[in-house]
Design a protein around this nucleic acid. Structure first.
Lengths: 314, 314
DNA sequence: TCATTTCTTTGACCCTAGTCAAAGAAATGA
DNA sequence: TCATTTCTTTGACTAGGGTCAAAGAAATGA
């Protein structure tokens, strides 16, 4: 069996000036804005407790969740929650479904404190932005937005996983539920690929992870027995991870997987309602072809010849 | 005497979404990149010491400087330096000019450690950027760059200071030295405004501060005895603070000061070699007029009628 | 010259943040 | 059913990061 480990997305070396600029920004930002923020957030409460209160939030959260989200030691967390409980800011109860779990929720007093935290943080941000014209603020918002999108994208790792893997199943289920809502005629989950179709020599299932959390998937299957044509299916991105350019990247990874498996051509079909997907495929070098299957959901059919372009587009 | 306190630069309220976007970015960035960076920077050295080593840098620094730059308690700093000295990473000596001051410098071993720090930080940044295409990296660098410029600009405060204030004098001296180099014929510092010309009713001297450090200046004087015309002079920005849009902002502040003093018109002249300045004035609504004085350095003369535009440009 | 200010050092503290191990209680899988 | 895993609590302990006040030495201003 050939190597199926995900190959590095991009082998070109990183320009020293890009590194320097990221480091420079990092230094400036964390020292000047981040440090300020932490200082104001806490006020007369220890930073750890302030963060914990913030993280519990309006809806409450299980200790387990908080532990993972904040990356805290279980004992440390337990003690902090106890302290906040003693101060009347937090109320702890047993999870109704699983009595090993505890749920922490804010009391009214806790809510007040969190509201104050937010007001302070807002005031800090407002004070910063006050020094700019509305136009410049808009520029700043835009710049921070695209920086954040790119940093998120950079941190996402795409992996080949087994079709039966729970993360894969979760993605495919979410995909099915998503398009079931978007297709006027609904979507029958029985139409999803089977695990056996996307493993081994002829197929692959890719899952994209953002900090351990699966946020996107895409499947490659063998289209014919001859083995020259692959089919791409179920390219899906979690709503939280859209507009990062992740679909394009997944597509590129899927094409690379197809090349690795010796396919010359990949095909895919798409529903009439998914117009963004259609533009994406066109932008990535796919061209429309006649219907090649009897998929009830397929309205447009695309194909791309592999082995000529660079891995994933500009 | 009328109130001469600097008025707020901009009175429009800050949009809630701009505040939210800044806070959102801040959370994402400090938790994900900043925290990572700190963790990697230190390795098996306490973070405080690692930061201190970095801050001492190749050129060394006085304890006083370090104390201010890092915002540390004097006793705490003293002890950290002592610890680094004991480890052979830092060497402390008495300042040649002022024996109250101590200078901390890296020993060769300290230099090695800082180099390693830098390599680790570079590797971290490179790992992040590896997930992007060269194109996306360029976008990221651009976005971070403009965000940083805007954040710096937002943090700069413009103040009216007395013409004799040491910060004012420092700026004017730097201005004189700067243009002395740029003018082919040199510049005679005797031509600078006198403190009495920029104080009281008819004139003002503005100094822009970036975190307590003066980084730009600009002077407003009365041009004629009638009191309808003001003259703007000595608009200068420290090289480190250029390309932020600070000159434009200073100009706007000076115009506001002129309006406050009842001037209808402001004039200024500029040297033939300062072409950027000329474009700035044009962009800010100044129009060229005939020579109005016998200044030997003046080659182009501009004027602007006040009281119509918004404080400072788009 | 003398009082005041600036800069550093030292001693004596404190608290936050965090680690590690043990143990109990509930859920899960075989 | 029983062994294993998951989740939380508790005890014991540590290091890092930091504050405060006193005091000495040098510089500065009146």
């Amino acid at each position: 069996m050939r190597a199926m480990h995900p190959v590095p997305v991009n082998t070109s070396t990183v320009a020293a000036e890009d590194i320097a600029s990221l480091r420079h920004f990092n230094r400036y930002f964390t020292r000047r804005i981040g440090a300020l923020d932490d200082h104001y957030l806490g006020q007369d409460r220890p930073l750890g407790e302030a963060r914990l209160l913030f993280e519990i939030g309006e809806d409450g959260a299980s200790l387990r969740d908080l532990r993972v989200r904040l990356g805290l030691d279980a004992g440390y967390l337990s003690r902090m929650v106890k302290a906040l409980d003693a101060e009347g800011l937090v109320r702890v109860s047993v999870h109704p479904g699983d009595s090993r779990l505890r749920i922490a929720e804010l009391t009214p007093a806790g809510r007040v404190e969190v509201t104050e935290q937010n007001l302070r943080a807002d005031a800090l941000a407002e004070g910063l932005l006050k020094g700019l014209t509305p136009d410049q603020r808009e520029q700043l918002t835009g710049a921070l937005g695209s920086a954040q999108r790119l940093l998120r994208l950079a941190a996402i790792r795409v992996e080949v996983v087994d079709g039966g893997h729970p993360d894969a199943q979760a993605c495919l289920d979410a995909y099915a539920a998503d398009i079931d809502e978007r297709f006027p005629e609904g979507y029958d989950p029985a139409t999803l690929v089977q695990p056996c179709e996307v493993s081994g020599e002829s197929g692959a299932l890719l899952v994209a992870y953002e900090e351990k959390r699966p946020v996107a998937c895409g499947a490659l299957t063998g289209f014919d027995q001859g083995g020259r044509i692959g089919e791409i299916r179920h390219v899906w991105v979690h709503p939280d991870a859209r507009r990062l350019g992740l679909a394009r990247r997944l597509l590129g990874e899927l094409e690379r997987q197809a090349e690795e498996r010796g396919y010359d051509v990949v095909r895919l079909d798409t529903h009439a309602s998914l117009t963004e997907a259609q533009s994406l495929y066109r932008a990535c070098g796919y061209r429309e072809i006649p219907r090649y299957n009897d998929d009830v959901y397929g309205a447009y059919f695309f194909e791309k010849r592999l082995g000529t372009e660079r891995p994933w587009g500009p």
